[in-house]
Amino acid sequence: MKTLLRLVAAASLLLAPPIVSAQTAKLPQGVKRVVFLGDSITYAGQYTADIEAYFITRDKAANYEFINVGLPSETVSGLSEAGHAGGKFPRPDLHERLARVLEKTKPDLVFACYGMNDGIYLPFDETRFKAYQDGCTWLRDEVTKTGAKIAFITPPVFDSLKGGKPGYNDVLGRYGDWLLSMKKSGWVVADLHGPMTAYLDEHRKADPNFALASDGVHPGPEGHWVMAREILKFLGASDVAKAKSAEEMAAAPTHGLEILKLVTQRENLLKDAWLTATGHKRPGMATGLPLDQAETKAKEIGKQIEALLK
Rank of each mutant, 00 (worst) to 15 (best):
L309T: 10
L200I: 03
E230F: 02
D134Y: 06
D239N: 13
M182E: 15
E306G: 05
A131W: 06
R282D: 05
V8A: 15
W187S: 05
S21P: 03
G194Q: 14
K242L: 11
A85V: 11
T264A: 07
K149P: 05
K130E: 15
L102E: 01
D177L: 14
N63S: 09
T146H: 07
Q23K: 15
A241K: 12
F158E: 09
L102N: 03
K205G: 09
L260Q: 07
S21L: 14
D159P: 02
T48I: 08
A246N: 03
S160N: 14
Y47M: 08
L275T: 02
T296D: 11
G78N: 07
P166W: 03
A190W: 04
M182T: 15
A44H: 07
V240P: 00
T75N: 04
L179D: 07
R58P: 01
F111A: 02
S12M: 14
E230K: 08
G147M: 01
D134E: 15
V8R: 06
R140I: 05
G256E: 06
H84A: 11
A62H: 10
K281S: 15
D215Q: 10
K162I: 10
S40H: 05
V217P: 02
G45D: 06
L37E: 04
E258Q: 14
K310V: 13
R229K: 15
R33H: 05
M1N: 11
W225F: 13
L308W: 02
G119T: 05
